[in-house]
């Protein structure tokens, strides 16, 4: 059994607004073990982004605490990389310089930086686009750059907030398979938020289901993995076991429709 990487206990958050505090989440307890991919699915507005931002260190929990490697999270840090739903890569940096940014910040020497960046450019299918600016790329390409940028900085934990929500359905299938392979080969601890049941089951070692707002964790389902490497959509859709899990999650989510 792997060690606990992220432990969220008794977390609850309120935002302050003009008309008083707004409850964004119910009480949430989550443990993410080292090297596993945990996906979180829940209706829109239930507090998924709030939970992720708290783990990232961007917001201070109103209640409860968040531990990373046993230490309380007090702010953002390079051991917890984030891929955002909105595009967060920098428009004024080329693909190559966006991916290299985390390594530049860590003062990694140029030769080593170039090697890492080249490897990720190859892995993410960005060859030939190294010197383009983000506005010259398609939406899917930009999200690939965002994923590559986070991976290049080599954080222990990667937090992803609906990264493929704005990508067209065809490209999304490819990106999901690529991400699955990347997770399997790099053994990262990944926390992945989505509102798509299929995506949650396809990518996750475990799937967490949230209730509607203010959200709490309603169910936890294990998704067994046969063989090494990521899943692919062809065998996934043909696998009765996967279909059964997807249906189960679907039922849980449907009960939370808003």
């Amino acid at each position: 059994m792997s060690a606990d990487k992220i432990v969220v206990s008794g977390f609850r958050h309120y935002f302050q607004s003009e008309s008083g505090p707004v409850q964004a989440t119910g009480v949430i307890d989550v443990t993410i073990r080292e090297g596993e991919v945990v996906t979180l699915v829940g209706p829109s507005g239930c507090g998924k982004t709030t939970l992720l931002k708290a783990i990232a260190g961007f917001i201070n929990p109103s209640e409860g605490q968040i531990l990373c490697d046993g230490h309380q999270v007090r702010g953002p840090g390079r051991e917890r990389g984030v891929v955002f739903q909105e595009l967060a890569i920098l428009p004024w940096r080329t693909v190559r310089r966006n991916i290299a940014h985390g390594l530049e910040i860590a003062r990694v020497p140029k030769p080593e930086r170039d090697r890492t960046v080249d490897r990720l450019i190859g892995l993410m299918g960005l060859v030939g686009f190294e010197d383009r600016y983000p506005h010259e790329l398609s939406g899917g390409m930009r999200q690939r750059v965002a994923v590559a940028r986070t991976w290049a900085a080599d954080p222990a934990v990667i937090l992803m907030d609906e990264p493929f929500a704005a990508v067209d359905a065809m490209t999304r299938l490819t990106l999901q398979e690529e991400l699955g392979r990347l997770c399997a080969t790099t053994h990262k601890t990944v926390f992945f938020i989505t509102h798509s049941v299929e995506e949650a089951v396809f990518l996750g070692d475990r799937v967490l289901v949230m209730t509607k707002r203010p959200g709490t964790i309603k169910a936890v389902l294990d998704v067994p993995r046969h063989g090494k490497g990521g899943r692919d959509w062809d065998s996934f859709t043909g696998d009765p076991e996967m279909r059964a899990i997807s249906e189960q999650v679907m039922h849980l989510v449907h009960a939370e429709r808003v």
Binding site: F58, R78, V82, G102
Partner: peptide
């Protein structure tokens, strides 16, 4: 300037100055 761009750099380990 969109806040998410700053958050992104912060989570890459960037300082306030960065």
């Amino acid at each position: 300037v969109p806040e998410v761009l700053e958050l992104g750099v912060r989570s890459l380990g960037g300082s306030r100055w960065e």
